[in-house]
Simulated assay, not measured.
Amino acid sequence: MFDEFFEKIGLRSTNGVPPGGDDHDENRRSTRGRVSDRIAGVPPVTRALFARIASADARAVALALVLVLSVPAMAIGSVGATATTQSGAIEISTVDELQAMNDDLSADYVLVDDIDASETATWNNGAGFEPIGPTANGSFMGSLDGNGHEISGLTINRPDENHAGLFASSYGDITDVNVTDADIVGNNQSSISQTAILVAELQSATVENVTVEGTVEGHRNTAGLIGLSQGSTVTNVSGDVSVTGEAYVGGLIGDASSTSVSNAEVSGSVEGTYERIGGLVGYATLGEISDSSSSVDVTGEQVVGGLVGETANTDISQTFAKGDRKG
């Protein structure tokens, strides 16, 4: 069987004598060329196998071809496939995979391991991690289930961009994740900027069972957890943060519009150079805040509060604030 196969693909002379003699090396080179021509359509994993045995005898190469082609196509096609859960969520276990979420902004994702993101400090010439769902390419519309895992050492240094955070803009739910030792720098001049550790801008989504720790520097709508939240639910969240901005600055949320906040607590420091500076939320309107607390030192020029800098049509219950307040 093999002799007939070898003859058909040109690896055996018609008289049954394999290439050899004084022209042995030339025969091997021409043989490889013929094999290469005949396997141009073979999957990369197969071609890689031939690259590793390129110096082998022509008959051995051909035999390898027979064996590899006998492997079911399904098995070959599975090599390098993206891992998913039974529910269809894409599994994330490395910082590179986390960054690759930008390749599909409508997918569901789940963390399957803690992620050390400290190397992002050197990415993109010091600009760090590229926020997921950059507004130029569309917002994040999928979901992230952190599965209780931690993302540590995240660096984002984008003082010329209006959205800085693990997520730039998200309409998708984010749950059960801890982001620690984060260093986030956003636009320090624009009045339409949003900066936070988790989400710069959250729209009509849920953030639940999330913890953030780190430093945040921005301008407007700057906070530890969410810069700007509209029509969303934020529950069972906490933070230990140092936040600096100009206006609409909060320990967890900078500007909360039509947003429900419950079971939230924060510690650390919040400093604003102008107005609407709060330990928990900088500015809250048309929403509710319940069962929450702030243990934050707050500094601002005007409209400063230990819990909320300023509220409008917001129900507040079962909350308290402690810590120094200046302004």
Results as ranks from 00 to 15, higher is better:
D3V: 05
G21E: 13
D23G: 14
T31N: 10
R32A: 03
R34L: 09
V42N: 15
A51Y: 07
I53S: 10
A54H: 07
A54N: 08
A54G: 04
A62R: 01
A64L: 11
L67D: 13
P72V: 01
A73P: 00
A75C: 04
I76V: 15
S78L: 10
T82E: 13
E91Y: 00
I92M: 11
V95K: 03
D96I: 15
E97M: 10
A100R: 14
M101G: 00
N102Q: 15
S106M: 04
D108T: 05
D116F: 00
A117C: 04
W123V: 07
G128N: 07
F129N: 10
G133A: 06
P134N: 09
T135Q: 14
T135K: 13
A136N: 10
G142E: 02
S143Y: 02
G148D: 12
G148T: 08
E150N: 11
E150I: 11
H163D: 10
A168M: 02
D173P: 00
D183Q: 10
Q189T: 13
S190I: 02
Q194M: 11
T195G: 03
A196F: 01
V199W: 00
A205L: 12
T206D: 08
V210A: 01
L225P: 00
G227A: 07
G227Q: 05
S229H: 14
T233H: 07
T235N: 12
V237F: 09
S238T: 13
S242I: 12
S242K: 14
T244L: 11
G245K: 05
G245H: 07
A247S: 14
Y248I: 02
V249K: 02
G250S: 09
I253T: 03
D255V: 07
S258A: 09
S260Q: 15
A264V: 03
S267A: 09
S267Q: 11
S267F: 01
T273P: 03
Y274F: 03
E275D: 10
I277A: 08
G279A: 09
V281I: 15
G282C: 05
T285A: 13
L286A: 09
I289F: 01
S290Y: 02
S293V: 04
V296M: 06
E301M: 07
V308I: 13
N313C: 05
S317K: 09
Q318P: 00
K322L: 09
K326F: 02
